[in-house]
Design a binder for these strands. Structure first.
Length: 427
RNA sequence: GCGGUAUUGGUGAAGUGGUUAACACACCGGUUUGUGGUACCGGCACGCGUGGGUUCGAUCCCCACAUACCGCCCCA
């Protein structure tokens, strides 16, 4: 085994690729119906773009960035997430300008990179489908984005999903809450797990979803961020909730839900799914939220933003295996050649069928007739045309319905000019 | 960055410090003449992740590295 793919990457082979196409096409369809349009931004950006958006202290920046210096000594990073690049593009292209309709709504899909140790369902190159909407602080927009996420999953026939929301409030909220949380937890310092003792200094919010049982006990009585929301943030969160209710979208509030990135404000949400594909444990498939300071952070106006990202690998694990849309398509017609002498006329027949819009194929390995039929069978060909000298002399070839075994002779002109009606006769 | 387990042909896998690395599936070919899905026959690892070492001799023992899976950290 001389060459192998880089650690943490995967080859998506044709069979699997069908599922990807299905997911991407469905997402496109749903998003477009909400007037979100596709944007394509570079897969790599200046390192600073991500450092700026994620916060210097975040792990994403400090150890997970897939970065390098190019031949021009530029510090480059493969994008670890989609939002930063889109925000950069939004500002750089001045999409905040008055000639644009607000909110400015876009979606994207593609590979993201994280330099980390691969493990259960995590790779160094993974894929996200994401959406972003700029230029409105309306809680209705929060509702729309969440509704759209749910609609996509429903359309993909994903079962067992539920929406979880929380609010991180504005800057004031976070400052106040951060202090309150540290004040509450510090007396328990000795009782906290080793990890959480460290988090108390680096990122106290993370202690809220510690896996340690005793930590969870302590956290149970910790102050909730929802009590620290400023009046504006509280009103926003209220409006989001009533908006969701009005649309009949079920949700639950988890005030311990946090984010690894620094840029989130106010509403954050996740859609979690319980599925046998994840050992019946809960897995987040979609995560998103507001980031009202980010556009300004990138040198644009003080404009709001909201978006979400979908982990495509995870999503694909949830797809119904029997879904027709992801099955391999059977071949319409296979052309069998009885000898090399008929190769040219047979190829012409083949091409005419393809040009009529049907899928068709032939043998390229000089297989015998029997072998060709075997291949036709493997390709699940619906019809097989056998081309031989004698048939050509009569301007007519046998076409066989593989399912019924019935074979009839058809005039060559009819096959080449009206394949559709030919197969209609055989069904 | 840390820890555990694993690595034999296209696939699933058995196997032993020492002649020809089992079996199955798949695939290819054949069972006389140009027609599939069954049956029968035959073929298919000069090689056991890579590189070192121990040994008279290693796929099987030791070390390092790579990769995969699982867990920690962290998580978009």
């Amino acid at each position: 085994m001389r060459y192998q793919k880089p650690k943490g990457t995967a080859d998506i082979l044709p069979k699997e690729s069908k599922k990807w196409q299905y997911v991407e096409a469905t997402a496109q369809q749903v998003f477009e119906s909400y007037q979100f349009h596709e944007i394509r931004t570079p897969i790599f950006e200046s390192y600073d773009v991500f450092e700026r958006s994620s916060g210097e202290s975040s792990d994403v920046v400090s150890k997970e960035m897939y970065d390098f210096y190019d031949k021009g000594e530029r510090h480059i990073a493969l994008r670890p997430e989609g939002t930063a690049g889109v925000v950069r593009a939004y500002v750089e292209n001045k999409l905040f300008g008055p000639e644009q309709v607000k909110p400015y709504k876009v979606y994207y899909h593609g590979p993201m990179f994280r330099y980390e140790r691969p493990q259960s369902g995590r790779q160094r190159q993974f894929h996200q489908i994401g959406v972003e909407a700029f230029g409105s602080t309306s809680p209705q927009l929060d509702v729309e984005v969440m509704a759209m996420a749910e609609q996509l999953l429903s359309k993909l026939a994903i079962k067992g999903m539920h929406l979880v929301i929380n609010s991180l409030g504005d800057v004031q909220t976070r400052t106040d809450y951060h202090q309150a949380l540290v004040d509450y937890l510090t007396p328990f310092n000795d009782e906290l797990s080793e990890d959480s003792q460290r988090r108390l200094v680096t990122n106290p919010l993370r202690i809220l979803d510690s896996k340690d049982k005793h930590d969870q006990e302590i956290v149970k009585n910790a102050p909730t961020i929802l009590n620290f929301l400023t009046p504006e943030s509280a009103a926003h969160f209220e409006a989001v909730q009533s908006g969701l209710k009005a649309l009949g979208i079920d949700f639950e509030i988890d005030h311990t839900m946090v984010r690894g990135l620094d840029y989130y404000t106010d509403t954050i949400f996740e859609i979690m799914v319980t599925s046998p594909a994840f050992n019946n444990s809960e897995m987040t498939v979609i995560a998103g939220g507001r980031y009202d300071g980010l556009v300004k952070e990138f040198g644009g106006p003080d404009e709001a933003g909201i978006g979400f990202g979908i982990g495509v690998e995870r999503l694909i694990l949830l797809l119904d295996q029997d879904n027709e849309a992801t099955q391999e398509q059977p071949l319409d017609c296979y052309v069998v050649k009885t000898s090399d002498a008929v190769a040219v006329p047979a190829f012409k027949i083949l091409q005419s069928i393809r040009q009529a819009g049907f899928s068709a194929d032939q043998d390229y390995l000089d297989r015998k007739v029997k072998g060709q039929f075997k291949n036709a069978d493997r390709l699940q060909a619906r019809f097989v045309i056998t081309v031989g000298d004698s048939e050509l002399a009569q301007n007519s070839v046998p076409i066989k319905n593989m399912a019924t075994g019935v074979q009839v002779d058809m005039p060559l002109t009819e096959i080449e000019n009206d394949f559709k009606s030919v197969i209609a006769k055989l069904n």
